[in-house]
Simulated assay, not measured.
Amino acid sequence: MNLSQVTFLYLSHKRALGRKFRAEEDILRAFCKAIGDRPITAIEREVVLTFINGKGPITEYWTKKYRVLSGLYRYAIARGLAKASPLPRTIPKPTVPVFVPYIYSHEELKRLLDTVSTACAGRASIEEDVFRNLLLLLYGAGLRLSEALALTLGAVDLTQAYLHVHETKFFKSRLVPLGKDLTTILSDYISNRHKRTTQLESPLFCFRDGSPLSQSAVRSTFRRLRSYAGVLRDGGSRHQPRLHDLRHTSAVHRVIAWYRNGADLQELLPKLATYMGHVDLSATQRYLTMTPELLRLASLRFENYAIGDQS
């Protein structure tokens, strides 16, 4: 069976299991293009290594390509479509430092919001009020950017204070409760939006012409905002704070607040995972980058536990 046929079957299998597999599909399509549509059993180790290694240093993307192709070959071998995998058995360590999510401080979040008017001035495609409320929602509700941009006016229930999030990362929908402050902010924003349209299917966040915001435009505006606000870190352009880090920050700030209030994290972390739309707790744990403050509070909690246990 040719590579393209096996790839099609593998993608169909994964999506039948509830995975979107979009990034993985891009890698597999690039692999098919690089290798050519020939029998999967005739693909040599050398050409596979050439595709994985690419032309630059070994990065996390090397590992991503390796894992995607490993999944493809495991699928093919299990179904008798291939006899063995041409992939290397060992994974080299990246020569480029692994990206660490950036956790914004409250002061940095304030600077970003205060600078929105500058980033959206002139001929910017996104209006100031739209971009500010988008940022507040990404942080306040811990949403993925794709989830926020897919929201319509009808998906926001201000009476019961929740969002109805559709078409999430794993093809699931969920209800996201809103805090009092965020509900008030969205209520004011939607009141202004209703002056333009009352159609429930209209996008919550849109361009000046009413069309839905695109991820590329939002990310571009955020990079400009980040530069104006002076929220930067060492490591070059590849390692600068991202828009997605607002979601990481939301999770970390929530856990810090729980620590300070003496809450039971074993009980609350599974609820946080559900709130953020994760399929299991391990996905949420990856979001909890250990900031100095989080480490200090965790150490203090353990110290209090250990002292109490000795008494």
Rank of each mutant, 00 (worst) to 15 (best):
266 Q>I: 05
70 S>P: 01
34 A>I: 02
75 Y>W: 01
122 G>C: 09
147 E>P: 00
274 T>W: 02
196 R>Q: 15
204 L>F: 02
151 L>N: 09
16 A>H: 09
309 D>V: 09
256 I>G: 08
72 L>K: 08
88 P>D: 02
77 I>T: 03
58 I>H: 05
85 S>K: 00
281 L>K: 07
61 Y>W: 11
230 G>W: 00
212 P>N: 09
164 H>S: 12
175 L>R: 14
311 S>M: 10
228 Y>R: 13
262 G>I: 02
100 V>W: 09
57 P>I: 14
65 K>A: 01
86 P>N: 07
233 R>H: 03
97 P>G: 11
215 Q>S: 13
60 E>C: 06
125 S>R: 14
202 S>P: 05
258 W>I: 04
227 S>I: 14
255 V>C: 09
77 I>S: 00
152 T>R: 15
150 A>Q: 14
310 Q>T: 14
55 K>Y: 10
238 R>K: 11
22 R>Y: 13
150 A>H: 12
160 Q>H: 09
169 K>P: 04
59 T>D: 12
250 S>A: 15
109 L>D: 04
258 W>H: 02
201 E>S: 15
49 L>T: 00
111 R>T: 04
28 L>G: 04
78 A>E: 14
283 A>C: 12
90 T>H: 04
215 Q>K: 11
230 G>T: 09
288 L>C: 05
26 D>M: 13
30 A>K: 10
150 A>K: 12
154 G>A: 10
